[in-house]
């Protein structure tokens, strides 16, 4: 048997693809999987945007509680900045924006933006050194000591949350909301933004209870809320949930499917190396090909 170089390349290329396809096929069979409620007993926050008055007290609380450049309290009194669309960055873990609402909406609508703390965080999946981790209590935390500054997490995040300290020449960090993890887990307190919200637009609690609370609210006041709890199924569920009165698709809550972002890549990558069977099979196959070629040459002589 004579194997030409072209055929050999075809064969070697087809092998892993076939394995990858075999690994991913079962998942692509169900288009909308049931929401993953693995973190239902973990902490979460329900953002009721209908109660948000855009006062920026959450920003102030966040600024005081975290290791970010300290700002004067009076800076947060300036409400005009909410009309310009802002994003969380290396200096602010959370920002409040005014949302483009239908003209008949009597009051301006605001939405607080911060890390959603996904149940299946793409940032943590993309992180090659494990600096980002989903804690069993809910927060997605960051370990600056492990971080090598590759910024894959920033590319991976479906909400484009992580910021980076570009201005720092030495030891720049990835900057994102950490859900005040120490504060809520060790001290048993609420996150700083939740504690500071005067209108209690933010409710801190177990995700399961928050989900039921949100559904109760939506059923009780159908005129006030859209029948959509954002974050319940989006990207496989998030610890932060949003209850809204207007469509937020144009704002910072993009329409995302219910499949976790890292699902496909993790399936392929983990599938390729599962129990070391696929590599062994591939190299075994290659060995067979080589052996058959070798024996063919011998037989021809």
């Amino acid at each position: 048997m004579s194997l030409r170089r072209r055929d050999f390349l075809k064969l070697t290329a087809a092998g892993p693809v076939a394995f990858a396809a075999a690994a991913t096929l079962p998942t692509s069979a169900h288009a909308s999987p049931a929401p993953d409620n693995a973190f239902d007993d973990a902490y979460g926050v329900l953002v009721d945007t209908t109660f948000c008055i855009g006062c920026r007290k959450c920003e102030w609380g966040c600024n005081e509680a975290n290791d970010v450049p300290r700002r004067a309290r009076t800076e947060f009194d300036d409400k005009s900045v909410t009309t310009v669309h802002r994003r969380p960055d290396a200096t602010a873990y959370t920002v409040v924006n005014q949302i483009a609402a239908p003209p008949e909406t009597p009051q301006p609508v605001y939405a607080k933006v911060q890390c959603m703390h996904c149940n299946h965080p793409a940032c943590a999946s993309a992180c090659i050194v494990g600096a980002l981790r989903k804690q069993p209590e809910g927060p997605v935390t960051y370990d600056a000591w492990k971080c090598i500054g590759c910024r894959y997490c920033m590319v991976a995040c479906p909400f484009q949350i992580p910021g980076y300290e570009y201005a720092k020449a030495l030891q720049p960090r990835v900057m994102k909301c950490g859900f005040c993890a120490e504060r809520i887990i060790k001290e048993g307190r609420k996150p700083a933004c939740v504690e500071n919200c005067p209108n209690e637009a933010l409710t801190f609690g177990r995700r399961r209870e928050l989900r039921s609370l949100a559904h109760q609210k939506a059923v009780a006041s159908p005129g006030r809320y859209l029948d959509h709890l954002y974050g319940e199924t989006e990207v496989g569920g998030t610890s932060w949930l949003y209850l809204t009165g207007v469509d937020f698709a144009r704002a910072d809550l993009p329409p995302l499917g219910s499949r976790p972002v890292p699902e496909l890549t993790e399936k392929i990558q983990h599938g390729v190396f599962k129990n070391f069977v696929p590599p062994l099979a591939l190299f075994g196959l290659l060995g067979l090909v080589m052996a058959s070629q070798h024996s063919g040459e011998n037989g021809g002589k």
């Binding site: 005067p198 209690e200 928050l210 109760q216």
Partner: peptide, 18 residues
């Protein structure tokens, strides 16, 4: 904590006034 739906005094005041 038992009834997350009910705002605390701070929330109740502010919601009424604001």
């Amino acid at each position: 904590e038992q009834n997350l739906r009910q705002p605390s005094l701070k929330g109740a005041y502010h919601r009424q006034c604001m």
